[in-house]
Design a protein around this nucleic acid. Structure first.
Lengths: 360, 360
DNA sequence: TCTCTTGCCGAAACCGGTTTCGGTACTCAT
DNA sequence: ATGAGTACCGAAACCGGTTTCGGCAAGAGA
């Protein structure tokens, strides 16, 4: 009984400094403390400094949920994960989360995450989080070319930031990696190695990046003065199996390529399989360039030449952007791109001088 | 101007039903509504029903952060991820999160996640989340045999639940998979296939499971009437490389085994490499059993015999347990174990009748 | 010198809930 | 009929902040 009571009072007292204690200690009112902490212009610089010093000294941290009751904002970022389609996001998730968390926490924000299994729950999940005020805005990973999340949030006038660019991205803040430049550079790199016939395996068509990367590939081919053969182009491949299938089809074309550019590392690894089944040695008979920089690529035989994406950095950037967006910064300032870094390993090599004989 | 104003009022009004509106609609006071919603005993059943019906009808959902200001509880579960040591948790993370989120959301709770890069930040992160009242309790993945998180939270009298059992787990709620039974069954399965010399590659010694799985292996060997050769035992292997190293050492022993049990799938895949380097064919010359059920195991050559852990289910269970813990249920009721499911694939086979000749 | 701003801050209402403290009406035993 | 419980609910304080409103003093302009 006494112990329970002690624990209770302990729990309530829990060394938390309230705004009233601050006010008492400073000999001012709560309102002054509040305004000083929030940088209102009608507080003298001297007072503001005095208050902030005292906050530091006493360890005063305003409770975000106490503020939220009046402001409606809770200082937390929302992230809704989808696992329905495929689990390709799996390898990125950990680093991405680390980045988001890091970006958020340096500003004193936190991350609220939810996961849905199917598309029906998705919108419902957003609504629930909003209704309960559990997030002030959302990070939307994997932008779709026509994204229902964007429609919902825009209509509800809720801040959000996309990972990936949309075509109709007016009124959106976003962060993206320049996948199109990577595809172009992949082609140019291969062309420099003497490859003339180059295939392309694109990713999921529903994603916003698919169009961009296709264009990047085309640009690269044009710049290199090479023609595009539709028989060497595959789309909508996301998984290792997809990649193996697509590569098989491309390699079985009447006039097969000596190199393939893949928009997704998993499909590049799938291509390894198709090549092996046809007796083609990667890096000699067939060159392959991937994109993403998954760890498995480094351990593959031969190690995969690819474009590495720093997902942790992406997380940091997205968190920062979203916070600025929530604070009301204009959209134009909230769009950032970074290049992917080209990692040349052993899956690319000089184009074979003779048609590689198949050692099947 | 008018648009901005409209949006503002719209934002404030945002069709949210407050407790006062409920009270007005019902002709009672706020206190009655509050007590009815929370199931206080001094409210008549009739009134409680009436209130809850009206809540349903009007779509009243109490704001958790408004309640929190008085109750101190926010209805959110905390999860702090660590990426310092190694990224072995990566393949599990997505499913685990999905489970946690699902378990939490069915009870109307949410998930607050943070990530730290190094161990120093870890405790600091917990403190920050607690100070800001961003979580009412924590899920602690990957229980260590001596866990600083447990010490902190126990001292602060904050509810938590472990994924994994501790030795000194009195006063802890936990959920765990019976890894020791899996190790035992792995041995028995191999013994039944005729194997007499069986190696064991254990996981990270700092983890609580290591001791349990070692004991499980030993129990299995004892039950099968087999002796343990210390030269066939390795510990502290987490990654693929660790596994390759450990397996190499074991296979190079004077009297090498015909089978190896691995406490971690990654090390099992590492053993594949060591075996290949020695010209041993997995499933014929050397049998291997893993544990975890990572997807890569299914795609390996040959597909890996392993014990699959349902990380999604674990997440659901842990979320539910933690919520019950926070609500004050006694600890004894909050401990659950489930078996791993044995997935027999092709990495295990009958023991070779003759000493396999090395085809190196 | 007197009014008008302007800068700065206090007083008090407010946000959406919870909880304490009574108070009324009704039952039941005396 | 009376006193004591008991069941149920209203009134009001409270939680930790924010925000509106207004007031005072100092400086500016006339």
């Amino acid at each position: 009984m006494a112990a329970a009571l002690a624990r209770l009072t302990d729990r309530n007292a829990r060394d938390r400094v309230t705004i009233s204690q601050m006010a008492d200690a400073l000999g001012v009112t709560k309102s002054t403390v509040s305004r000083a902490m929030n940088g209102y212009p009608d507080i003298s610089e001297a007072t503001q400094l005095r208050v902030k010093r005292m906050a530091e000294k006493m360890g005063y941290h305003p409770l975000s949920h106490a503020q939220a009751i009046k402001t409606g904002r809770t200082r937390s970022l929302g992230l809704v994960l989808q696992f329905a389609d495929h689990d390709a996001q799996r390898p990125f998730l950990a680093e991405f989360l680390a980045g988001l968390s890091s970006g958020a926490s340096t500003e004193g924000w936190t991350l609220t995450v939810a996961a849905t299994d199917n598309h029906d729950e998705l919108i419902e999940t957003f609504r629930t989080i909003l209704r309960d005020g559990k997030a002030d805005g959302f990070i939307l990973p994997r932008a779709l070319s026509d994204d229902p999340r964007v429609r919902l949030l825009r209509e509800a006038d809720v801040p959000f930031v996309l990972f990936g660019r949309q075509e109709m991205a007016d009124g959106c803040a976003w962060f993206d990696v320049l996948g199109e430049d990577a595809m172009r550079d992949a082609v140019l790199h291969l062309a420099e190695l003497g490859h003339r016939r180059i295939g392309f395996i694109n990713g999921g068509r529903q994603y916003a990046y698919a169009g961009l990367r296709a264009r990047g590939f085309a640009d690269g081919m044009a710049q290199a003065g090479l023609g595009i053969d539709d028989q060497l182009i595959a789309t909508d491949a996301m998984t290792l199996e997809d990649g193996a299938r697509a590569a098989a089809q491309i390699l079985d074309a009447p006039d097969p390529p000596t190199a393939i550019v893949c928009a997704v590392d998993f499909t590049a690894l799938g291509s390894y399989r198709a090549a092996a089944e046809r007796g083609l040695k990667i890096g000699r008979d067939l060159s392959i360039v991937g994109y993403d920089g998954i760890p498995e690529g480094a351990y593959a035989h031969p190690p995969l030449t690819t474009f590495a994406v720093d997902n942790r950095a992406a997380g940091v950037a997205l968190a920062t952007l979203l916070i600025r967006r929530i604070k009301g910064e204009p959209l134009d300032a909230l769009r950032t791109t970074v290049p992917a870094t080209f990692v040349v390993r052993s899956s690319t090599g000089p184009a074979p001088t003779h048609k590689p004989k198949r050692e099947l």
